[in-house]
Amino acid sequence: MTRPRRERVPAALGLLAGLGAAFFILPLAGLLARAPWGDALTALSAPETLEALRLSLVASLTATAVSLLLGVPLAWVYARVEFPGRNLLRALTTLPMVLPPVVGGIALLLAFGRRGLLGMLLERGFGITLPFTTAGVVMAETFVSMPFLVLTVEAGLRSLDSRYEEAARTLGAGRWTVLGRVTLPLIAPSLFAGAVLSWARALGEFGATITFAGNFPGRTQTMPLAVYLLLESRPEASFILSLVLLAVSLAVLVGLRDRWLGSP
């Protein structure tokens, strides 16, 4: 009698759900429809486009590398060390995920700008200027993207059965051997997911970058900045670049589908 049947969708619910989906699909469709496919190659091979693309890749990959170098130890500390103020510190280092990026950029300026807290010391002491340089782009991108890696890796570490690490120690493995041969390999999926997420976030970074690093072609002008500026001068080219960024985002999402999209 009770044979499984498809859920009947109430009309109002179906309408709203359809509107919701359309809200996401229409802009993408618009982008695809209006993209000047014929000029795609010329737009993409324009020197300033290539320059922005190159800078974007270099900066975002460097930001991801820095995030891994600093973020994995931070995640480890959050997951394994109990200390007073841990939750507060975690909240502070997660803040850039919800902070308007422009505010992040201003905060970076106030800390590392030429007249910033640390920036002044760096400039006077070592002659190092960070804002409005490629290094500044990397900093801005790291600032907004590292929290994604930290949270993902921390979750991975927390769900790891730490008895594997104990087993390794009974076999004579010291701290670093345990980390390198047991801990990190066992959380490899989290490491990978965290790195990809934070890389994607870094690649799309706009607000903090333009605030802290400015918009100098070849030096600090990344793809999102170029897209925004081209919208004024050569909209077709900006459409094409948008499509490139869209393709990358889609690739990330598909690549991580088992993790976030679930496998039906």
């Binding site: 059965d161 008895r163 594997y164 104990e166 087993a167 390794a168 120690r169 009974t170 076999l171 004579g172 493995a173 010291g174 047991v182 066992l186």
Partner: peptide
């Protein structure tokens, strides 16, 4: 632990 000359067989083995 890592410097004790011991061998441990854990309850659910904990093979890597």
């Amino acid at each position: 632990t890592e410097r004790r000359p011991i061998g441990v067989v854990f309850q659910d083995y904990l093979l890597f």
